[in-house]
Structure formats: C-alpha cells, structure tokens
Design a protein around this nucleic acid. Structure first.
Lengths: 242, 242
DNA sequence: CGTGTTGTTGAACTGTCTCAAGGACGGTGG
DNA sequence: CCACCGTCCTTGAGACAGTTCAACAACACG
C-alpha cells in the first residue's frame, strides 16, 4: 500500500515499559522510530555470545531500522518508560514527499543523532577510560538535564546499569566502576543509585576531550528548531512537538 | 534560492586529487556528498592536538556534512583520485521532493553507510587488536575487491598509511604494524606496499567477530538496487549509475 | 647523496582486563 | 519480622595486552 510515493504515512504510537524490548532485526519493510519521550538503547549480539549497547537514543532522536541492518538480534530496549512513534515508509525522502513538515523534523532529528554518533566514534577512540566516561557524562548531562539556577550542578537519572554504560563505552564494568569512584573522589560527581549529580561541570569538561564538540552540537540542536523554521517553513507553533 | 521546497537541486561534480582536502566544518548551509569514484576519509581534530580518522567513505557512499557538526577542523581527505558529487539542499527529504529517484538513491546510500557505521562502533568495542584489524580487512575487502575466480584470494589497493588505519581502528600505529606482521606470519594476508592480498578469507573471517554482519550487509547492499527498483520504482537502467 | 616519510621491531612501562570476594539492596517466602 | 536469594556495585591482586619510546630499514624525492 505504501510501497511507492503514493499513499499516506502510517504512524503508530508505542508505549514501552522499562526493559521492554522491540526487535528491529530483519525489519525488511523498514520503519523509522522517533523517541517522543523516554530513553532507549540499541543492543545487539556481537561475536559469539556477547551483547553490546551500540547506541543510546534520547528524547527527540530518530532511528531508522536500516541502521541495524546486518546486526544479529538487534533490539531497542526501553531504559525507562518510553513513548515511541513508528513511521512508515522508513525513508525520510519518501516521508518528506508525503508530509514535508514531518520530513524536515525527522531529518533534523536524524542529522543531530548522526552527528552525535560521529562524536561517539571519536570517544571510542580515546585510550583512557577516564576520558571516555567524562565524554559520556557530558553527553548524558546535556541531553538529560539543565544546569541548576545559580550553580553549575547538573543532576539527572541515568537508568542504565554499569554494565550497559561500560558496554556503550567499550570498557570493562569493573574498570568503569573504578573510574566512577575516581570521579567521586575528585569531587566531580556524586552518585546515588542511578541518579548522578555533576557537581563540577567545568572539571568534568576538562577531563572530556569531546566536551566542546558535544556542547556545540547540543547548542545548535536547540537553536536549530526556530532557525530552521524561519528559513525553510512558515513559522509554526506545531514544529516543536511531534 | 533553494531554501524551501521550491527550486532545483544544485549539483556539482568535484574531482579531487590524492590527499586533496575539503573542509566540511561550519558548512552551515549543508551539502550532501556522494562518492562516485575513489576513496575518502573523514578526519577531524579531537582533543588538543590529535587528528583522527572517524570514517571511511567508499564508492557509492553518501555523506551529509551535518554528520560532522560540532567537529573541529573536519575535512574530507581523498585517499586516492576521487570523484565527488555535491548536492544542495543537503536534506534528502527535500532532495526526494525535488527528484524522487535521486532521493531514493541517496537514501539507500545513506542507509548502507549508516548501517556500516553501526558495525564500526561494534568493531571499536572489540578489545583485541587482532579482531579490529580483521574486521577492517573484511570491510575493506568487501568494498574494494571481488574474490578471484577459482580461489578465495582477494586483492586490493588500500591507499592508507598505517597511521590512518590505526586511527580509524583506535589503535596505536606500532601495535597495528605488529598485528599486520602476525597476520602475515599466519598466512592470512600478504602485503606489498599498500596493496593487500587476502590469501585466506575464511581464516580472516574467523578472526573477525563482525565478519558475518559485514558480509550480510554487503550482500544486501548489492541486492538492494534491483529489489528496490522493482518494488518502489519502475525498473530503470539509470538506477545503477549516478 | 642527504633528507623526510613510512613501516617494522625490541624493551620497558602503564593501564585495562580478569578473576575473585564481599557489601548493598530489593524481592520473595516462611 | 526475618532469613534467603539474586542482582548490582565495589574493590583488591595479578596477569595480560597495548602503549610508549627508541632504533633502524626501506623508499621516494629533490
């Protein structure tokens, strides 16, 4: 029905509970997911028996299932209660033809996430475990929190196990735990269960080689919405929500 | 002129000589590049004074400059004589509106490359240097060569320095050289300058945790063109070239 | 022929990984 | 209420592998 340029966009809203999984391997038709709310991990099996967290989707991120092509047992895992939109056709080129505004929004979301993916590749190139965790905490802090008024402290819930974070950063969970301890001792962060308070944002950024890039990207992503609206579309209130 | 849905696609053909560079940082307008021929590296500065190879673009790959957002001093470097197509507008959603066939082709190219990027993230998660190089040689072998008739030997020119390969794999150049030596001693590869012959493709794949995924992806990418043409477009000869 | 780049290899170092043990916490059942 | 269990997190000691630094060979270039 939706195979070619004709037809309408088929969208479904999916409410996922924590730890609920969505298999995205062999999604031959192809879907485009959009994280309206929540936090999602892309996990897959690599090698013989290992599972790895290959990507983290924050609110506002778009994910086309074609990016998981070739990955065995690729699943989206809700790290917390999550609301997903699922679109067909998968191609934003075709979505853009059917609904230009939606296409533009998805395109921006995809561009931002892919830019962040590039930075993540750079992070994985860091040899030091401290640098990688610092990069990740900057990324998570920018996506999940705003600085508290009057102080540079940023607090957020990071509903991931140490094992998942370590997997995302290509580190050993034990090593990651040690780095967390070091950061705590240096007064950079405080942790309480899976809540993290970044008490010294400046110090964290000094330990994070990619911090400047990540902050740049986050600033442009927030600035992008109204800018793009002014340039490419009639300014519309609707362009903020999904 | 091209700011909204109206107007035409602006395309330019760029011929790059070996080592020629194209700055893609602060490309605010946004372009979409397509590698018609050749081999291109995405390099950027990370941290204070290090440069890193963050991605490799093979023939048929598409690259939107928005993926380099936030990266300081991001450049495309031609590893050999290369022919690039540069398109505006950058968004394939808009390209698809102006030229559905081109949009579909670019969308396929982007999907393939992003799937490969996901696999590369998985590769960087491998702790062993042998596994990472094996992954890379499988990736390069699939992209740059076909198995010789009657034998499983695959030969190709890989016009990258050891330093560039090491950077792409997040390894030390010295370490990489040692792994090359090991592979040579095990009879998996033969090297002659920057020409590589893979003499034992099966053995290489056994050392490469991602080999199955990479082969899957390559098979689908080549199968994709006619399939997609049958399903989504009138079958046209033109869909093979750019 | 000297120079600069690239690739290889050795020896020592450093940081991560591995394995094991123990603590903290929440859920379950008696 | 409390013992038990499983999961998650932390920490220590030792092994291991990649990194670093240095030296040298191969090669292209002017």
């Amino acid at each position: 029905m939706n195979a070619d340029g004709s037809g309408k966009i088929c969208s479904i809203r999916l409410a996922l509970q924590t730890e609920q999984r969505l298999i995205v391997t062999d999604d031959v038709d192809g879907h485009l997911f959009y994280v309206a709310q929540g936090l999602v991990l892309l996990e897959a099996r690599v090698g013989s028996d290992q599972r790895r967290v290959l990507d983290i989707l924050f609110e506002g991120d778009a994910f086309p299932t074609c990016e998981a092509r070739g990955l065995p047992e690729a699943v989206l895992v809700a790290a917390r209660a999550t609301e997903l939109m699922r679109y067909r056709p998968a191609g934003i080129d075709r979505i853009g033809r059917l609904d230009p505004e939606l296409g533009a929004r998805m395109h921006r979301a995809l561009g931002n996430r892919n830019a962040r993916r590039t930075l993540h590749v750079a992070t994985l190139g860091e040899t030091s475990a401290d640098a990688r965790l610092a990069d990740f905490l900057v990324e998570a802090g920018l996506a999940l929190s705003e600085p508290a008024i009057g102080t540079p402290v940023r607090g957020f819930d990071l509903p991931l196990t140490r094992e998942q974070i370590a997997s995302y950063l290509a580190l050993n969970p034990d090593t990651l735990s040690r780095v967390f301890t070091r950061f705590r001792q240096r007064g950079i962060i405080e942790t309480n269960g899976r809540h993290i308070d970044i008490r010294d944002w400046g110090g964290l950024c000094q330990s994070s080689p990619m911090s400047k890039s990540l902050c740049d990207l986050a600033a442009r992503a927030t600035a992008q919405l109204p800018q793009a609206a002014c340039r490419t579309e009639k300014f519309s209130q609707a362009s903020h929500g999904i």
